[in-house]
Design a protein around this nucleic acid. Structure first.
Length: 460
RNA sequence: UCCCUGUUAGCUCAGUCGGUAGAGCGGGUGGCUGUUAACCACCAUGUCCGUGGUUCGAGUCCGCGACAGGGAGCCA
């Protein structure tokens, strides 16, 4: 008999012949004459109800099957006489494939997310984490589909990098040197005898390499793991996370924002249409009103506002802010949320930030005081996408790198991209986990990553 | 890294004025029922985070430490 999934059984009306289904026991309710097993195989949120009559051989043993056990069941699918499920499986045979005992940590009761994090190897069997990781998988496919439909080239940028200064935070060192006795010359570690014959690290961004590919394929994107060694202990930071970074040649800031809007709304629509059952679960169990919030973003056009204008709104704001507001200062998340939630009441691109508060690679505007940056702010979280038009003029870029203390020698190849056939180009970055949090209502990044890495935590 | 709050049964928590620990859930046993957060009865379970101190006596008060969570910063 073919292996069939719970999701497919639940979608069918009934079976003409016997079927075989396998999964893990969520709960078992045993009575004298009949026992009910709620069976789940991760294919869908709802479990399959298996009915075992007392006439089955080994009925007494079936009644003792504990939560968490792996079982294979053959039987006939039929309409369920009781409310709660359209169909159920009348069992002919129940085989325990892998038993579980009463010490199984994931019992049929509510657990806190904090506790479930300590059993990250088991939590995907729970309702919430099943839904989160089904959505995460589906969303990843949707990201690729979006770019493939638009003929963006998917480029695998390196995970190990020797550029010490990508300008995006602390990096994890990659080395094969013996930490107890590193080779030392003149009081400093001699990296010439290290594996790469120079200091190497895990990447903090694929953008710089992405730009190089954009200068050959026009439209490209990266989607891969990213590493930050920052000692950040918050609900939205992880040491290892996934980032999506498209880059377009012959494109300006407006093209960039247009792509970001199309992309973001595409992904909202995707989960509404393709993860409907899980989204309904998030809406009822995780964040009331989630569906309405996501639908609104999927349906309404995004606004655009200059940084300077945002500052004027903030200066006039009738609410107190913890951090000061004035032109030239970076916006705190309280400011971003005020703009998107109170002023615009929807998604908004903030553009043209003061050059001092933005990265060296952003294109200088003609006013000489701002750069062509754009951040997409959305209600509830604030900034979710950050992007810019890149500085394509060699002289200005070199100047900017020197001013920012970026090593122009180490990034010779990056500067070369401006030396021959340079083009106006733009791109943005989106943290995949933050997107998942936005779309599910989950409030801790550690609960949308299968096995999260954060300071002091690399278990599993 | 800074600030705040925690750490008591497998899980979630209560524990009054300092007097040697409780509940719910989960688990076990039995009963009952086409059940579905099942229901009913009974039963069992503790390094009260560690450490030092105050005290006749510390889960409770004080110091130190560890760990966790939340907030901030950094950022995606």
């Amino acid at each position: 008999m073919p292996r069939i999934r719970v999701a497919d059984l639940l979608k069918s009306k009934g079976s003409s012949g016997p079927v075989k289904v396998s999964g893990w026991v969520r709960t078992l309710r045993a009575g004298k004459d009949v026992a009910f097993i709620a069976l789940s195989d991760g294919s869908t949120l709802a479990p399959l109800q298996v009915v075992a009559e007392s006439s089955l051989p080994g009925f007494a043993g079936i009644c003792r099957i504990a939560t968490g056990s792996a079982v294979t069941i053959t039987g006939t699918l039929r309409e369920s006489p009781a409310q709660g499920q359209p169909v159920e499986l009348a069992a002919d045979n129940v085989e325990v494939v892998g038993s579980a005992d009463e010490s199984y940590p994931l019992q049929k009761k509510r657990h806190t997310f904090e506790y479930l994090r300590t059993i990250a190897h088991l939590r995907p069997r729970s309702n919430t984490f099943g839904a989160v990781f089904r959505l995460r998988s589906s969303l990843a496919h949707a990201v690729h589909r979006f770019f493939e439909e638009r003929r963006f080239l998917y480029v695998h940028t390196p995970i190990i990098t020797a550029s010490d200064c990508e300008g995006a935070g602390e990096m994890f060192r990659v080395t094969t040197l013996d930490p107890l006795v590193p080779p030392v010359i003149d009081g400093a570690v001699d990296f010439s005898s290290d594996f790469f014959a120079q200091p190497a690290s895990l990447t903090v961004s694929g953008q710089l390499e992405g730009e190089l590919f954009a200068q050959a394929f026009r439209d490209i994107y990266t989607f891969g793991p990213t590493f930050r060694a920052e000692n950040s202990n918050t609900t939205r930071h992880a040491s290892e996370f996934w980032m999506i970074e498209p880059e377009m040649a012959f494109a300006d800031l407006i093209d960039d924002a247009r792509l970001a809007e199309e992309f973001f709304r595409y992904l909202c629509r995707h989960v509404l249409e393709n993860c409907a059952e899980d989204m309904a679960f998030f809406d009822s169990q995780i964040e009331k009103g989630l569906l309405e919030r996501v639908r609104k973003v999927a349906d309404s056009p995004f606004e655009m506002m200059e940084y300077s204008e945002a500052i004027r709104y903030l200066e006039k704001a009738p609410v107190p802010f913890q951090f000061p507001v004035s032109w030239g200062l970076d916006l705190q998340s309280e400011h971003e949320r005020y703009i998107t939630e109170q002023i615009v009441q929807g998604p908004v691109f903030l553009t043209n930030y003061p050059k001092e508060i933005k990265a060296f690679y952003m294109r200088q505007n003609d006013d000489n005081r701002t750069v062509a940056a754009m951040d997409l702010l959305v209600p509830k979280v604030g900034e979710i996408i950050g992007g810019s038009q890149r500085e394509e003029r060699l002289d200005l870029l070199t100047l900017k790198m020197n001013d920012s203390g970026v090593d122009t020698k180490a990034l010779w190849w990056y500067l070369d991209s401006r030396r021959w056939g340079s083009t106006p180009h733009a791109g943005f970055g989106l943290g995949f986990e933050r997107l998942i949090m936005y779309l599910t209502g989950m409030e801790n990044i550690r609960d949308v990553i299968p096995f999260p890495r954060t300071p002091r935590h690399a278990e599993f």
